[in-house]
Design a protein around this nucleic acid. Sequence first.
DNA 1: GAATGTTATGTTATATTATAATAGTATCGT
DNA 2: ACGATACTATTATAATATAACATAACATTC
Lengths: 165, 165
Amino acid sequence: MSSLKQPEQFPAADHDHRTCINHALQEAERYCLQQGLRLTALRRRVLELVWANHQPVGAYHLLEQLTHEGRKAAPPTVYRSLDFLLEHGLIHRITSLNAFVGCNHPGLDHAAQFFICEDCGQAAELDDAKIESAIAQDAKRLGFTVEKRTIEIAGTCARCKHRSP
Amino acid sequence: MSSLKQPEQFPAADHDHRTCINHALQEAERYCLQQGLRLTALRRRVLELVWANHQPVGAYHLLEQLTHEGRKAAPPTVYRSLDFLLEHGLIHRITSLNAFVGCNHPGLDHAAQFFICEDCGQAAELDDAKIESAIAQDAKRLGFTVEKRTIEIAGTCARCKHRSP
DNA sequence: GAATGTTATGTTATATTATAATAGTATCGT
DNA sequence: ACGATACTATTATAATATAACATAACATTC
């Protein structure tokens, strides 16, 4: 069912990241058009900046970049755009880092798990059905209704492990 | 193997919470004595305050309470105690709430998952081997070394669901 | 195409959470 | 009692996030 555009792994070191960005923006535009949402210049730019790489980005980093570009921006400027992007599944929030990262399959209601390298900062988004079902099972046992899942695994990715043993 | 003192569920509404607190403090004292750690008055009091109920507590809330008790305290006072308690597994941090909650089985190296009710604020700590192994499996596939897990499920607990349908 | 409603953004101020840096105090082992 | 170590106090500030309100852009309907 869920055909993820990005594979369930860490992005290769040598991948052409412009492709990622372009794809993400195209998807976002397609999605917003389809849903009747307004992907304004600001929101589009924030999304693009979040997608600058595969590392979660902090709100104030984004703010700084917007300011440097000459745009008048204050914290709410950024947070509101982030809220919009979050609400429509175009980005995810990484709670443990107070940061935001692009989502590779907007619209799709999915429960994401993040593996985050503490060395290079890159994050991989997974959607592991086993984890999902285990949580669902626990919830059922507890009589608990799940609203939001925060599943963030920090550690060291394969590349960084090999680089500095 | 792991014999948890608190069951893997939400605490009953009518349980005698002083028992929880007393037990937690006793366990902490036992553990610190055994490990040669110093559970100072401040640390003990912070632990007690964290255990005041089964809801995660914010650092500044603790600070306020300490201040009201006449103790001279500033943010670092609290955060250092919290760091100590965290480091030795006497409390857990709930990242998604920026808050802290008592741990019912200190010392035991366990991967905790939290189910947090957005209505009453209570949190239940689980240690589900299925979730654990699923994550381990993903990590293996990615060549990822796990350091820290943040697994926090927000929603509505059974009691709150029944109370306000 | 002006009036009106709606959504998005700008602006100011401030709340909330967390840490850096340094000095002082208690505690422990000898 | 003494020196080493671990803990705490104090001040200042960093980093993250939101409240409250004003203005601007856009879109509809008349």
